[in-house]
Amino acid sequence: MDEEQLRGATIRDVDLSGTRFVGVVAEHLEITGEFDRLEVNGVDVVPLVAAELDRRHPERARLRPTTTAGYTEAFTLLEQLWAGTVDRARGLDPALLHERVDDEWSFTETLRHLVFATESWIGRVVQGVPSPWHPLSLPWEQMAPTPGVPSDRDARPGLEEVLELRSSRQAWVHDALDGLPDAALTEVRTVPDGPGWPPAGKQVPVAHALDIVINEEWWHRQYAERDLTALIHRQEQT
């Protein structure tokens, strides 16, 4: 693109690998996503951003475990952090828990997606369950419709129903870690046959699957906290 005007644009869920922005001007530029390298005026800012996130959120240091005990501690910490977030959500009108902020997932959609993430990487990969899905599980929005994998985007379950489901899937994590030797973290598991995510036959190290769920849990809580602040303000204005 040359001399295009993108002022005020929102670019969502795109792969920009290898993209170069040259001679661009931005009074304000907001980027969220995952980056191996992000070079701004010749400086890779990824390590700088990671260090700043660690400063703002000291718990992140405990979310990079290398032992089974460390993973158990990390998931327990995430559960404690989420408990505070859920307490904030309980103060909202239940209808607001289904509302989106800036077209991001609603609070209940976020919890349903975390159920799907746990089913995918713990149930399907670590525990080897071919079809671990609950009907309320919610894949990411760009996932193509897949027979055998639920994707009911019109469902409006109550908070307690979703929390009960989520609690059952959080228990899967602890069950998977219970008695798991440290050496097993480097084992490579083959995703079983059947439709779903990750694709059947994919080779996934156990630690990698656990790390993905930790990453999903931490980031989606950040987004949920951000959006709850907006929803609380919205409720106070009515």
Rank of each mutant, 00 (worst) to 15 (best):
M1V: 14
D2T: 13
E3R: 14
G8N: 08
V14Q: 12
D15I: 07
L16T: 03
L16N: 02
L16P: 05
S17T: 13
T19E: 07
R20M: 13
R20D: 15
F21I: 07
F21R: 03
A26T: 15
E27C: 13
L29I: 13
L29S: 14
E30W: 09
I31Q: 06
I31H: 09
I31W: 08
F35T: 14
D36L: 04
D36Q: 11
N41R: 05
D44H: 13
D44T: 12
V45S: 03
V49C: 13
A50L: 13
A50H: 15
A50F: 12
A51S: 12
L53Q: 14
D54V: 13
D54H: 13
R56L: 15
P58A: 02
E59F: 06
R60C: 08
R60K: 14
A61H: 15
P65C: 04
P65A: 00
T66F: 11
T66E: 13
G70V: 00
T72L: 05
A74V: 04
A74I: 04
E79K: 08
Q80D: 13
W82A: 00
A83F: 14
T85D: 08
T85C: 09
D87I: 10
D87S: 13
G91V: 01
L97K: 00
H98D: 07
E99C: 11
D102I: 04
D103V: 05
W105F: 09
F107N: 00
L111A: 04
W121I: 03
I122Q: 01
G123F: 01
Q127V: 10
G128V: 07
V129E: 09
P130L: 01
P132I: 04
H134Y: 08
P135K: 06
L136R: 01
L136C: 04
L138S: 01
L138D: 00
P139A: 05
P139Q: 05
Q142L: 15
V149W: 02
S151W: 05
D152N: 12
R153E: 12
P157C: 10
L159T: 02
V162W: 03
V162T: 09
L163Y: 12
L163S: 11
E164A: 14
R169Y: 03
H174T: 15
D175M: 09
A176C: 07
D178T: 11
L180W: 01
L180D: 04
A183D: 15
A183H: 11
A183E: 14
A184C: 15
R189W: 11
V191R: 00
V191N: 03
P192L: 00
P195M: 02
P195D: 02
W197R: 07
Q203G: 15
P205R: 02
A207W: 07
I212L: 13
V213L: 06
I214Y: 04
W219A: 12
Q222N: 15
L228A: 00
L228D: 00
T229N: 07
A230S: 06
I232C: 07
